[in-house]
Amino acid sequence: MSVELMVNGLTVVLLVIGCFFFLAGTVGLLRFPDLYCRLHALTKADALGLGFVTAGVALQLGAWHEILLLAALWLLVLSAAATVCHILASEALAQGVEPIQAGAGRAGSMDSEVDASSAEDGSEGGDGARARRGVSP
């Protein structure tokens, strides 16, 4: 009885922590100014939020092979999130989407991939993008 109560309490704590990270990911997705910052928030929600939720759910399961399945699921989501974040960020960088630099104010237009001419005119760090474009094959 007491052990069950303790396991349930631990599940509640883990699920609340996981929900907090999901909330942080959603707020970051809505409030962050840049694609790269949003990717950062997304990866936090993917890794930590789902990790805590998975741990909390795994405590409620009896059989060990189901816990193993949950661990495999979390590892799959972890590696997939890291890979997707990397390919999205590298592709955006290769196409000249400007990251917001610290202290540079609002450098870089958000629509730079949509409209190339406005991105060329509007961004203050245009030569950086041009240099990166020259590097990319």
Binding site: R38, L42, A45, D46, A81, M110, E113
Partner: peptide, 16 residues
């Protein structure tokens, strides 16, 4: 604003 932002949001949908 960009297409990549929408894809990132869809990715968060999948995880949630």
């Amino acid at each position: 604003p960009t297409q990549a932002d929408r894809v990132v949001a869809a990715q968060l949908f999948g995880t949630t």
